[in-house]
Amino acid sequence: MRVGVKLLLVAVAVTAAGAVIGFYVSNLTTLAGSRSYSVPVQNANGHPVVKLEIQTVAAVGPTLSPNPDWVSYLVKDQSTGHWKRETVWDLPAHATVHVTIYNFDGASGLRNPYLARPQGMVGNRIRVDGKPTEAIDPNDASHTFAVPALGLVLAIPGVADEAKNQCEYADAPIGGCAMSTAHRTIKFTFHTTTPGHYRWQCFVPCAAGWVYGFGGPMQTIGYMDGFLNVKA
């Protein structure tokens, strides 16, 4: 084979490898593992208001994932009422976001107790099962929902171990865990700021079955990590 042809083949191979790596990195840092869900926007006197409903489930089930035993967040499609495993959410800038989290998972405890103090939302407090709360017991935490760049962090209390009718996996007809199963309800409100990609994540090592609880769903967008795509 002529030297020129060899050089051309090497150049093509290097270019192709670079393109694949670039695509992977781009995809990883924006939408990897999850399509984005555009949360419907309502207007209140010209001010954008968003209602965001999410679930945390101990096992996502075979319908929503090829990894049915992975822990995951789910988001409710407001148009269909079904739950989807999509953790990249499009939100308007400078909007009021009313969040409801339904947690169907058990407690595993915080390694960093200060995360039990909700911060970054309106009033720096959350409502747990309807009750205003300024801190939960760190040992009762099941997951966290944290958007570090917005200073938003809260710990989500878990379902009691002895609770009856627990959700085994999120495979109800509507996609998520059924509301008839044991769960905790957490509500809070926060405001988005300027446009940008804001990553969010769970800080509790909740990936059961993985080394130290930090692999799999903790390292994969579409499960316990995601982005708030705040758009103008």
């Binding site: 058990g106 407690a107 595993s108 405890g109 915080l110 390694r111 107790p113 039990a116 801190a135 017991d137 760190p138 040992n139 171990d161 090592p205 909740c206 059961a208 993985w210 080394v211 130290y212 609880g213 930090f214």
Partner: peptide
């Protein structure tokens, strides 16, 4: 929660930590 030792349900506080994969139910 910070003032109680971990054995009594308080938060862990030590100079080092080891991940506890078995802690989660």
């Amino acid at each position: 929660f910070m003032n109680k030792p971990e054995s009594e349900g308080g938060a862990p506080y030590a100079k080092t930590y080891f991940p506890e994969p078995d802690r989660r139910a």
